[in-house]
Design a binder for these strands. Structure first.
Lengths: 154, 154
DNA sequence: GCTGTTGTCTTGACTCAGTCCAGAAAGCGG
DNA sequence: CCGCTTTCTGGACTGAGTCAAGACAACAGC
């Protein structure tokens, strides 16, 4: 299920209660911030939370993110070389494209159905439960900027 | 090409010269350590290097790893939640399985040929140059330990 | 071989994300 | 509304990784 574009505060409250988590102001604010700013790093989420709730501490945001992640209400993504980022799309099997230049992250629906490369050529006895795919490249902006620079400078 | 099991010091020297890198004791030691201890984190590599070369500094190892990575002689892997790890298999398109319990990493040959999931369902205008696949699960040891524990304790 | 240039290594201070801890405060079931 | 339980706050702390300046070593040319 993709992120619903318009979620009310009461929806976040229901999500928390549904996960048997206490409904607190910091958690509502964090949930809202992750939904409003997908793929944001922790500092951005802290900043977004503090706009509406300046009294919420950094630790509360860290703790809320950890609990929401453990409860499956948000998802932690951490591409190589990047700090922790969070997104609100959970439960589906989508992957990510990361721009090597500006580090922007975009969602990609799984190309190969539900279990993309879950069948490794040889599982070495591993019990695999998830296959995570990260596409690396250049986002449209950085790609055209690079082509443009190359074309005019060299 | 997989890692050759028996590499001489002179082979490492040739690899460095082939990449037009200066041949220094720290670099040779780091190259050797990465080949001997694949998937090791930086601290382990520092430890392995210091056994034979106690005078080599931490910074030299960090710098060597960065340069060797930039030159393509070693590869940096960094699964979510893990510190930087290095391996010596480069140039092929293999992937990794990571144990959720003990964090051990194992190589997996690409299951789908050379460009596994490079064709995302919708590339959003991205110019993709690499698809990285990480399989998450339990290694044989942790899997059997978990089954055993479950069987005897509960 | 020897020497100068260039690039590398050492030492030590520093940054920054994330964690730990103990006391204070707030949510929730009765 | 009460009291138990869980969460939040503020501050100190950890640990991976970085930065910078000077000492040093590798390579190219003589």
């Amino acid at each position: 299920m993709a992120t619903n574009p318009h979620l009310e505060p009461s929806d976040f409250e229901l999500m928390l209660r549904g996960a048997t988590l206490r409904v607190t102001r910091p958690r509502l604010a964090v949930l809202s911030a992750v939904h409003t700013h997908p793929h944001s790093d922790t500092d951005s989420i802290i900043g977004a939370v503090k706009i509406d709730h300046p009294q919420v501490s950094r630790q509360a945001v860290y703790d809320s993110l950890h609990r929401l992640t453990a409860a499956g209400l948000v998802r932690l993504i951490q591409p190589s070389g990047s700090v922790a980022r969070y997104e609100s799309r959970v439960g589906d099997n989508h992957h990510h494209m990361v721009c090597r230049s500006c580090a922007v992250i975009t969602d990609v629906d799984c190309a190969v159905g539900e279990a993309p490369c879950l069948t490794a050529s040889d599982d070495n006895g591993f019990s695999i439960d998830e296959a995570e795919v990260t596409y690396w490249g250049l986002c449209p902006d950085c790609y055209s900027r690079k082509k443009f620079a190359h074309h005019t400078i060299s």
